[in-house]
Amino acid sequence: MQPIFSRNEDIEKIAFLNWRISSDDAILNMTNMAEGFLNSAIRLAKLNLIYNDHKSADILIFPILTNANHGIELYLKAMTWMLNLILNNGTKIEGSHNIRQIYQTVKAKIKAYKGKISPKDFAEATAELENYIGELFAKIEATDQKDRMDFSRYPFDTKYDNHFYVDLIGNVEIDLENFVKRFEIISQSLENLCDFIYYQELRDDTMLSTDISNGV
C-alpha cells in the first residue's frame, strides 16, 4: 500500500505541508494555517448545501465548527503576537482555546498600541465575529473558569459531563446557508486585519524589522 506521505504523479493531486510554511516566519505560518482551517469549514458547509444525502451534515457539522473555531483562534493569536511585538512587552501568544477570552485580549491590545487601527475600527471590522462569539458562548455556557471549547471535538468534557446538545430535549440547529454567509465575512475581516497589522504596522517599524523574520 502506498504511504499517505508520498508523491502523486499529478501535481494537482498533491498537498504540500511546507509550500506556504516558512522556517523563519512563525506569525505568517499561523495566519496561513488559520486561512486553511476557516476555508475548510466554509467549503465543507457549502458542500453540505449541495449534497446532504442521509443528513451527513449532522455529523460533518462537528469538524466544520471545530475548524471554524480553531481558525478564529489562530488569527486572534497571530494578532496578539503581532501587537505584543509592537508594544515590545516581551510576550508572544496569550490564552488557551477560549476565543472569547482571546478576542477580549486583542481588543485591549488594539487600544493600548495606539496605531492606525482604532478600537472603533476594530469593533466595526469584527462585529460579525463578536456576534458569533456571543451566540456560541450562550450555547456552550462557557466561562473563563470553565472552558468548553471542546464541545465540537468530544460529546463530553474532561469530567465526562455531556456537552449542551447531548441531553437537550429538542433540536439544536445550525443554518448552513447563514453559516457560510457569516463566516465568509468573519474570515475575510480577520485576514484583512492580520495583513494590515503585519505588513503596514510591523513592517513599517524599523525597530522591529530584525525580530519579525523569526516571529520573536
Rank of each mutant, 00 (worst) to 15 (best):
I4K: 06
R7V: 08
E9W: 13
K13S: 15
A15W: 07
L17V: 13
N18L: 14
R20W: 14
D25M: 03
L28M: 15
T31G: 05
T31F: 12
E35A: 06
G36L: 10
L38K: 06
S40I: 01
A45S: 07
K46L: 07
Y51L: 03
D53H: 05
K55A: 13
K55E: 12
L60M: 11
F62V: 01
G71M: 07
G71S: 06
L74S: 09
Y75H: 00
A78F: 11
M79K: 14
M79D: 01
L83G: 05
I86W: 08
N89V: 04
E94I: 06
Q104E: 15
T105Q: 09
V106A: 05
K111H: 08
Y113V: 11
E124F: 00
T126H: 02
T126L: 08
N131D: 14
G134R: 08
A138Q: 00
A142C: 15
A142Q: 09
Y160A: 12
D161N: 15
V166T: 07
D167H: 02
D167Y: 00
I169W: 12
I169F: 13
E173P: 03
N178L: 06
N178F: 10
V180D: 01
Q188E: 15
S189T: 11
D195V: 11
D204L: 11
D204C: 04
D204T: 03
T206S: 13
M207V: 08
L208D: 04
L208H: 08
T210Y: 12
T210L: 12
T210V: 12
D211Y: 07
N214H: 13
N214E: 11
